Amino acid sequence: MTAIETTLADRIDAVLPQTQCGKCGYPGCRPYAEAIGNGEADINQCPPGGAKGIQLLADLLGVDVKPLNPAFGMERPRLVAVINEAECIGCTKCLPPCPTDAILGANKHMHTVITDLCTGCELCVAPCPMNCIAMVQAANPEWTTADAERARLHYQARNRRMARLEAEKAERQLRQKQMLAKLRSAKNSA
Rank of each mutant, 00 (worst) to 15 (best):
M1T: 14
I4P: 13
I4D: 15
E5C: 03
T6M: 04
L8A: 14
R11Y: 08
L16E: 04
L16I: 01
G22K: 04
R30Y: 07
P31N: 03
A35E: 08
A35T: 05
A35W: 01
N38T: 14
N38D: 14
E40D: 09
A41I: 03
I43E: 08
Q45A: 09
P47M: 13
G50V: 09
G50L: 09
A51I: 09
A51Q: 12
I54E: 14
D59K: 12
V63W: 08
D64K: 14
V65S: 11
V65A: 11
K66A: 14
L68R: 05
N69R: 14
F72D: 10
G73Y: 06
E75Q: 13
R76G: 11
L79H: 05
G90S: 03
T92K: 02
P97S: 06
D101A: 13
D101R: 11
L104D: 14
M110Q: 14
D116S: 13
L117R: 12
C121A: 09
C124W: 03
C124N: 05
V125K: 10
P127Y: 04
P129G: 07
P129V: 08
M130C: 07
M130G: 05
I133F: 00
M135T: 01
V136P: 03
A138T: 03
T145G: 02
T145A: 09
T145I: 10
R152H: 01
H154V: 05
H154F: 04
R160Y: 00
R161P: 02
A163L: 14
A163C: 10
E171C: 10
Q173R: 15
L174F: 01
R175Y: 12
Q178A: 13
M179C: 08
K182Y: 00
K182T: 13
L183M: 13
